[in-house]
């Protein structure tokens, strides 16, 4: 940025104010960056109801977010991965159709608009978990919830044991956040709720979209 004109004065712009401003912008973005958004499956269209409330400001609630949906086998030839329903929207955000998107990225048009006879699945940080364990990274839904419950029980003061939950009627502190698509069958959501209840969870937050949007 500095340069000198032969025979003339050396012109050096003062970069300090611009640097100050850039650091302020960086600070702003660092503060507002939300890593928690990674646990939300934004392809889900949540139901909208009137009595739902936003999370209270500064609420110190331990949340376990579960994105519930149904999956089906990818119709792409030779692909045995699971596929989820996606909504196709045009530039103005208007719904123009549905398609299946599998774990390997295959896209297939799906005019039916809802998966019937699909398998119940949870999306956890982009991983699809089903009732059956597939590999180490894809444990069963029950296995995953048991792992989370184990961690939560140890974190409680005083720590809980499985016996406290099963025989002494103790409850977990954590709140299970159910994010289910509006077209998700009740049977799938109920399976997840029942599995959470078996692990000792009693507090639930049923997520909805913002009314009026």
């Amino acid at each position: 940025m500095s340069g000198s004109v032969p025979g003339g004065a050396k012109a050096e712009p003062n970069l300090t104010p611009i640097l100050d401003m850039v650091f302020q912008l960086i600070t702003f973005f660092m503060l507002v960056i939300n890593f928690k958004a990674a646990e939300l499956d934004t392809s889900l269209m949540l139901p909208v109801i009137g009595s739902a409330k936003p999370l209270p400001e500064g609420a110190k609630i331990k949340l376990l977010v579960l994105n519930v949906q149904v999956v089906t086998k990818c119709p792409h030839p030779g692909c045995d991965a699971y596929a989820t329903l996606q909504r196709k929207k045009d530039d103005s955000g208007k719904l123009v159709g549905y398609q299946l998107k599998c774990e390997r990225g295959h896209l297939t048009d799906f005019p039916q608009g809802a998966i019937t006879n699909g398998k119940t699945a949870l999306t956890i940080y982009g991983r699809l978990l089903t009732k059956e364990s597939r590999d180490r990274d894809h444990p069963s839904i029950t296995g995953y919830l048991a792992q989370e419950a184990e961690v939560s029980m140890r974190a409680m003061v005083p720590p809980l044991t499985r016996d406290d939950i099963e025989n002494k009627g103790k409850e977990m502190d954590d709140t299970i956040v159910i994010r289910a698509d509006s077209t998700c069958p009740f049977g799938a959501v109920n399976y997840i709720i029942t599995e959470c209840q078996k692990q000792g969870y009693r507090k639930f937050a049923l997520k909805t979209g913002q009314p009026g949007k």
């Binding site: 939300l40 936003p54 049923l206 997520k207 909805t208 979209g209």
Partner: peptide, 24 residues
């Protein structure tokens, strides 16, 4: 750094919820 934060910035969706105690 600023470019990184601008490009990766995605505001979280506005979501509401109903808190329930659901015993078996």
């Amino acid at each position: 750094l600023l470019a990184f934060f601008i490009l990766t910035f995605r505001p979280p969706p506005a979501e509401y919820q109903i808190f329930l105690k659901l015993p078996p």
